[in-house]
C-alpha cells in the first residue's frame, strides 16, 4: 500500500496546437486537501480528467494509489465530480442513485450517502428539474458512492450562491476529516486559501507555484504598505519587492512589513509620509503576480 495518492510524472496533453497540460510533475500524499488553482485554460480540467482516466495523456504518466487511473476508478478508489457534469435525463434522483450504487464494488450504504450529500428531500425530483445547488449535491453523492479514497472535484462550487457554497464545504469538511484525499480545481482564490492544505497554481499547463496559501502570498510579498508621499524611488527601502504608484498614493509590496515601516519612519523623508496603511496581500494579487510573468514570457517567445 502506498502513501502517495496521486503521482504525476511528466504528464502532457495537447489538443491540436494547444498544450493543455505541459510536463506536469506532482505528488499528492494521501490525506491531503489540495487546490488546483488557475485561470480558465490553465489545464486544471485536463489534468483532472487524466487523473480520473477520462483522458489518456500524450506523454508521461498518472498513477493513483500506485494504480493506473482507470483501474483506480474501477476499483472504486477514485470518485469525481465533473465540471457541469450532466446527469442522466428523464429519471429521478433516487432512481439515478440506486442505479449507480448497484454498479460499485464496495459502495457506502446508500442511506448514508443520501444523508451526507443532503439529497433526502429531492429523491423523487426529476433530474432535469434540479436547481444548480441541488444538481451539485447529486453530483457530490455520485462522487462519494464508491467510498473513494481520492475525491476529485472540478470546480465544485461554480454557479453556487454564497450559502450553497458554504454548505458544500461544510459537507466536504466532514469527509476530509476521515482522512480521504481531496483535490479540487477552482478559480475562487478564497476557496483555495480557506479549504486547502496546499495550493498548486497552474498556468498554461505548468505549475507556477506550490505551497500553502500563506507561502504563496509570501512569494510575492507578504504585506501592502501604502501611504501618501513624494514621487521618488521607493524600491530600495528594506523589505520592498514591488512599488505601485497611483497619483500621490504609493503602495509598497513588502516581504517584511516591520522592516519596511521602520525604514520609512527612520529615513530622511519620514516627515513627507502620511496616511500609512498596512494590509495583507490578497491572494488574488498574489495569484496574478504568479501567473502574469509566465504569460508575458510566453507572448515574447
Amino acid at each position: 500500500m502506498t502513501d502517495t495518492a496521486i503521482q504525476l510524472t511528466g504528464l502532457t496533453k495537447t489538443y491540436g496546437t494547444l498544450t493543455a497540460v505541459d510536463r506536469l510533475d506532482l505528488d499528492v500524499p494521501a490525506g491531503q486537501i489540495l487546490a488546483l488553482l488557475g485561470p480558465n485554460g490553465a489545464g486544471k480540467s485536463t489534468a483532472t480528467e487524466m487523473i480520473i482516466g477520462l483522458t489518456a495523456p500524450d506523454a508521461g504518466s498518472a498513477r493513483v494509489f500506485g494504480l493506473d487511473p482507470v483501474a483506480a476508478v474501477r476499483a472504486g478508489r477514485t470518485g469525481a465530480m465533473l465540471q457541469n457534469g450532466a446527469l442522466l435525463a428523464d429519471t429521478t434522483v433516487g432512481r439515478l442513485l440506486r442505479m449507480m450504487h448497484g454498479l460499485h464494488l464496495n459502495p457506502l450504504p446508500l442511506a448514508e450517502v443520501i444523508e451526507m450529500a443532503d439529497v433526502g428531500k429531492i429523491l423523487k425530483t426529476s433530474t432535469s428539474k434540479l436547481s444548480g445547488g441541488q444538481a451539485q449535491r447529486v453530483r457530490f453523492a455520485l462522487a462519494i458512492l464508491a467510498d473513494p479514497q481520492l475525491i476529485m472535484l472540478d470546480e465544485p462550487t461554480v454557479g453556487l450562491d454564497v450559502d450553497a457554497r458554504r454548505r458544500f464545504w461544510r459537507i466536504m469538511g466532514s469527509l476530509t476529516d476521515s482522512g480521504r484525499t481531496v483535490v479540487f480545481a477552482t478559480h475562487y482564490l478564497d476557496e483555495a486559501d480557506e479549504f486547502a492544505d496546499r495550493i498548486v497554481v497552474l498556468n498554461e499547463g505548468r505549475v507556477v507555484a506550490d505551497g500553502t496559501g500563506a507561502q504563496i502570498k509570501e512569494r510575492v510579498g507578504g504585506r501592502h504598505v501604502s501611504f501618501t508621499g513624494p514621487d521618488q524611488d521607493w524600491s530600495t527601502v528594506d523589505g520592498v519587492v514591488g512599488v505601485e504608484r497611483d497619483g500621490e498614493r504609493v503602495t509598497l509590496n513588502s516581504s517584511d512589513a516591520d522592516a519596511t515601516l521602520r525604514a520609512l519612519f527612520t529615513g530622511p523623508g519620514a516627515d513627507a509620509i502620511s496616511n500609512v496603511e498596512v494590509a495583507p496581500v490578497r491572494l488574488e494579487d498574489a495569484f496574478l503576480a504568479l501567473v502574469e510573468p509566465v504569460s508575458r514570457e510566453e507572448r515574447a517567445a
Binding site: 464494488l105 464496495n106 467510498d147 476521515s178 482522512g179 480521504r180
Partner: peptide, 29 residues
C-alpha cells in the same frame, strides 16, 4: 493505509463478478 481510515467503515460488499452488476445496469436501463 493508516492515514486513510474512513469514518463510515461499513460498506456494502458485492460479488467481484461484474456480470451481476452489469445485469443491474441492464435492468435499470
Amino acid at each position: 493505509m493508516t492515514t486513510a481510515t474512513l469514518s463510515p467503515t461499513h460498506t456494502v460488499t458485492r460479488p467481484r463478478s461484474s456480470a451481476a452488476r452489469t445485469w443491474h445496469y441492464f435492468i435499470h436501463s
